[in-house]
């Protein structure tokens, strides 16, 4: 089972990196959403994959019974999911607004923050050169 999950994590990671490398902001955002799920799956499998009971205490008992699953990775995942949910929502709005204002989703043609000067190198400006 661990092997299957490990391969799945690898495939998901590769897909999200592929998405993030596209020159399209929307795909980039989707890639980020995918990569955060990959990290969650990684945490999930790091807690050990075994068929066990949910970590709940049955009524009338004071401690959970034997063979309950480790609750901590699940709690960590839940926290991470909540955080990535809010960040993803924020990022979607940011991408949408950026598209509205800059009228492009290609990161390479967004040059408002680092304007390309005439005859400049990769970085976008020349020191002392003609403007």
């Amino acid at each position: 089972m661990e092997t299957v999950i490990a391969v799945l994590v690898g495939v998901l990671m590769a897909s999200s990196v592929y998405l993030m490398l596209r020159r399209n902001l929307v795909r980039f955002v989707l890639g980020l959403a995918l990569i955060s799920h990959t990290a969650n799956l990684l945490i999930f499998s790091s807690g050990g994959l075994q068929a066990r009971f949910p970590p709940l205490i049955t009524p009338g008992e004071l401690v959970p019974g034997p063979d309950v699953a480790n609750a901590l990775p699940q709690a960590l995942m839940l926290t991470a999911i909540v955080i990535s949910f809010s960040v993803f929502a924020f990022l979607l709005v940011l991408a949408f607004r950026t598209y509205q204002r800059l009228e492009t989703v290609d990161p390479d043609s967004m040059r408002s923050a680092e304007p390309m000067a005439a005859g400049a190198g990769v970085d976008g400006s020349v020191s002392g050169g003609p403007q």
Binding site: S86, L92, V93, F96, R101
Partner: peptide
């Protein structure tokens, strides 16, 4: 929070 985000997308962009 969700309502803020959803309304932000639906409403026209504020004038900069």
């Amino acid at each position: 929070a969700v309502l803020t985000f959803v309304l932000e997308i639906k409403e026209p962009a504020p004038e900069p």
